[in-house]
């Protein structure tokens, strides 16, 4: 999605996000990532400093936070993005900065790393092989991660996340089928968005 992203040419309009929209972002983040506390989000995305929304192409929204004491960069720092009606996903730099924030998380085995860094989607075996990891299914049998959920992707033996993506199968399907694309990678380390530290 961001492989060829270039903030100078690909971004069209910027608007301050309305308070209601920002509330919507917060609540949808909390819905999809149940381990994130409301207070944490309130702190990271304060009401006083509304996010700034950039349009990237026709269907992609990039949310940036304005410069403040919270952020280390001088200009608007990309923190979230959303494609069409998909899940709101955090940017990798944002994930790196707040390692205590508990997004949905999966781990891939080491063999997958070079491919992901090239922008490949995540195939099921990368998640089910030894070294790969997904949250265990809920007690009532429903999968921990549904199709369409946003996840942050970590790698075996590495500290930092290397990609974020959207599940194209539920986690139980991934375990049982174990074939094909399991996660569609939207943003990975080294892509255009990752190289964009701030947008002026």
């Amino acid at each position: 999605m961001f492989r060829r992203f270039d903030p100078d040419s690909d971004i069209s309009t910027s608007t301050s996000v309305k308070a209601s929209v920002q509330r919507g972002i917060k609540s949808s983040l909390m819905d999809s990532h149940p381990d994130i506390e409301e207070e944490e989000l309130d702190y990271l995305l304060p009401k006083k400093l509304p996010l700034i929304q950039y349009k990237v192409g026709p269907h992609l929204m990039l949310y940036c936070r304005p410069p403040s004491e919270l952020s280390a960069v001088r200009d608007n720092e990309p923190v979230m993005f959303q494609s069409r009606d998909g899940p709101i996903l955090p940017s990798l730099r944002f994930v790196h900065q707040y390692p205590t924030l508990k997004f949905n998380k999966v781990t891939v085995d080491q063999g997958a790393i070079p491919f992901i860094l090239g922008g490949a989607n995540i195939m099921c075996p990368g998640l089910t092989n030894p070294g790969g990891e997904m949250p265990p299914d809920n007690e009532d049998g429903t999968p921990a991660l549904e199709k369409g959920d946003g996840v942050v992707i970590y790698a075996e033996g590495k500290e930092h996340a290397l990609a974020v993506g959207v599940m194209t199968m539920s986690s139980s399907d991934i375990r049982s089928k174990n074939k094909g694309t399991g996660i569609e990678v939207s943003h990975f380390m080294g892509d255009g968005l990752f190289q964009t530290v701030d947008i002026s």
Partner: peptide
Amino acid sequence: MATIERVEVLYCGSCGCPPEYCEY
């Protein structure tokens, strides 16, 4: 209100990734 510690992540000056990914 809860505060969250912001961590300064070291990125390689050459490839831009955290050093643990430099080998790739």
